[in-house]
Amino acid sequence: MIEFFNVSVKSKNRLILREINLKIRKGEFVYLIGKTGAGKTTLLRLIYMDLIPTAGNVLVDKFSSSNIRKREIPYLRRKVGVIFQDFKLLPDRNVYENVAFSLRVIGKSRREVKSRVLSVLTQVGLNHKRYHKYHMLSGGEKQRVAIARALINEPFILLADEPTGNLDPEASKDILNLLEKINKSGTAVCMATHNYKLITWAPHRTLLMEDGFIKQEIDPDNLNQILEL
């Protein structure tokens, strides 16, 4: 479903990613761990083609980074959900409008938008707060709205870039549980995190990144290794 073939990314004469070979299968849950600057965010950006590799090829569903046209990228992004540490929501709109926005901008009808937004808000447990404004929500709730927005197009993979970075442990656990639920329903999840403790709560395939390459793949049954890092 997602494959990296000898992928390197260079910026200002510095290699940010070095010869990455990686495969993420359908419905898989993968953690990306590593220090700041290890290349986790860059790797995620390559998947939603916010960045094109300087060498190698990234294959995402039927799209290939080596021959994708600029105008095809939006269609790829409709199949890939992305969430961030800082939520990236529209602060002047309520929960419903924030989630609906992603369907409106791809030209869906008002009726279709309504039914899908309500369904996805129920899925993330925020239907009762759909008219709440951004500033009335807690950090965890904001991240749920972002997840709802990412899920609204029924992506085959959800990319999460430090989704718990701004949240307290309780809210972090809630978000992780939600991501687990989403994964169980068939959506693959690829999550970059610093929070190694989270991984012990919900163990999955874990890739340790360092200096732009995948240093080690950690066995989920051997999680003590992670806590030692």
Binding site: Y48, R71, Y75, R77, R78, L89, L90, V105, I106
Partner: peptide, 17 residues
């Protein structure tokens, strides 16, 4: 620029943005 970034993320075409 935030709204532009969000529109790009959710798959809006350049003309729509």
């Amino acid at each position: 620029r935030d709204i532009i970034q969000i529109m790009r993320l959710v798959g809006a075409t350049n003309w729509f943005i």
